[in-house]
Design a protein around this nucleic acid. Structure first.
Length: 451
RNA sequence: GGCGACGUGGCCGAGUGGCUCAGGCAAGGGCCUGCAAAGCCCUGUACAUGGGUUCGAUUCCCAUCGUCGCCUCCA
């Protein structure tokens, strides 16, 4: 069974399932106001691998990942560009899913939009106000964090320390709040801003309220796993949790957070530092599978630096797997090598050890190649194991695909020239095929083409 | 100030109290090949620094130096 590091208890523990056979996961999705960056790509890839692996083991996975389609940053951009805010969110969402498609990230089973759940949010906030856990001020409704017993659980900090460290940061709504750490559940609208009706005045929900409502609505109390990037740990996840606790509801059983993408100097890529590398750029210039490979080779909790050298190495690693798939396309079907599969499961179940699993993958590739070289007929189970691992990783290998008759004819001509020892002609044919983009592999048994 | 992560061979990046030990990319040598490609085999005296614990530490403990993250925009 899967064991994962749990942020709340700060140790690796078994992922206990509320409903045996089904895993319920909530992943905080994007706020759609700009293009996705490498960090978004990392988070979605990490959880895509988690999801695919869990499914591969035979579990049913319900993965809910929201779209935050109402937020200050959206409104700000709309004002700046004098465009309707809905136009921005729709466009950004389309770009998001296009990028995810290219990355090979499977669409979540549910994609709730914050704006579809405003009624439920108002209802929830009402409950909190009624229970004296929240109060309204002249600019909105706030949750009183002092009423939440273990506030700070996820960040592992108590309230005083958090406030002390606030430093120069501006405390939002400081003047009217009961406690500086109280956070907004409902923001009253300023003139011209998008708004929904509520008992406290027209306004919009706070970010933290969106995800509690949607996760509890779609997955129910005590769902299995809540995930997201490290930066969501606080305040977002802490505050989501605080609301659920204040409501007396069981929230996520397990918390998972992935590490950052950092730049060459080891600094986190962030919007405020302006060093964010666009995911779309990477997708346009490299084999998108390379980013998945790069992430598979590092542990999800650690930082990953994404640079030219890094990506290049991963591009080649993936190309090597393609060559393997092409080479093994003639090997018959067999059950996957049980020992390899077992080792793979052990590693993956150990806090999603994809680096160890990737090492196992390449080692199995090597063994399968050696077996094929030796002609002992032992390659097939190893090949099957490689394909199993790739499937669980969400890595789609390119075995070369269809070769048009015209190119196949030239390959045959190449073999004929070689047989006739007309090497000048053979070399010319090969060069011609290569310049047409074919990878040409000439073996004793004949020439194969792929691209 | 509080909480936390990290410093591994040319680059990236796992991991471990002692065993031949990751893995990818790059490099050198060999086998195979008409030559390549693909593949296989071999090679590289790695674990920030200083102490300590230990028969033995890259791995545990302490300190130092350095890098980074979070402490109400952020995957």
């Amino acid at each position: 069974m899967m064991h994962l590091y749990d942020t709340a208890t700060r140790k690796v523990r078994e992922l206990q399932l509320r409903d045996p056979g089904t895993v319920s996961i909530y992943l905080c999705g994007p706020t759609v106001y700009g293009p996705p960056h490498l960090g978004h790509g990392r988070a979605t890839l990490v959880y895509d691998v988690l999801r695919r692996y869990l499914e591969w083991t035979g579990l049913h996975v319900r993965l809910v990942s929201n779209i935050t389609d109402i937020d200050d940053s959206i409104i700000n951009r709309a004002n700046r560009e004098h465009r309707p805010w809905r136009e921005i969110t729709q466009q950004c969402e389309a770009v998001w899913f296009e990028a995810m498609g290219k990355l090979g990230v499977e669409r979540p089973t549910d994609v709730p939009h914050a704006t579809e759940y405003v009624d439920q949010m108002v209802e929830m906030i009402g409950e909190l106000v009624q229970g004296d856990r929240a109060y309204s001020t002249d600019d909105g409704v706030y949750l009183s964090v002092e009423t939440v017993e273990d506030y700070g659980l996820l960040v592992n900090q108590d309230l005083e320390d958090m406030i002390e460290g606030g430093g120069d940061r501006e405390v939002v709504g400081a003047g009217s709040k009961r406690h500086p750490a109280d956070f907004v559940l409902w923001k009253l609208a300023k003139p011209g801003e998008p708004s929904w009706p509520s008992p406290w005045g027209d306004g919009r929900p706070g970010w933290h309220s969106e995800c509690v409502v949607m996760s509890l609505h779609l997955l129910g109390e005590g769902f299995d796993l809540h995930c997201g990037g490290m930066d969501l740990k606080f305040p977002h996840h802490e505050n989501e949790r605080a609301q659920a606790v204040a409501l007396g509801k069981r929230f996520a059983n397990h918390w998972m957070h992935n590490g950052f993408v950092v730049d060459a100097e080891g600094e986190k890529m962030s919007k405020s530092l302006g060093n964010v590398a666009n995911l779309l750029d990477i997708l346009a210039h490299y084999d998108p599978r390379a980013y998945r490979m790069l992430l598979l080779q590092s542990h999800y909790r650690g930082p990953v630096s994404v640079g030219q050298d890094n990506i290049d190495a991963s591009v080649k690693a993936v190309a090597g797997l393609d060559a393997f798939a092409a080479r093994m396309s003639g090997v018959g079907v067999a059950d996957a090598d049980a020992h390899v599969v077992q080792q793979f499961r052990e590693r993956m179940d150990d806090d999603l050890d994809t680096p160890g699993s990737t090492a196992l993958l390449f080692d199995t590739v090597r063994r399968a190649n050696a077996a094929l070289d030796a002609g002992t007929g032992e390659a097939a189970p190893l090949v099957a194991a490689v394909f199993e691992i790739c499937a669980a990783f969400g890595l789609v290998l390119n075995a070369g695909g269809d070769v048009p008759a015209e190119a196949a004819a030239r390959a045959e001509a190449l073999d004929a020239a070689r047989a006739a020892k007309d090497f000048a002609q053979a070399d010319a044919l090969r060069a011609g095929l290569q310049s047409d983009g074919w990878t040409v592999e000439t073996t004793k048994s004949g020439t194969t083409l792929r691209r």
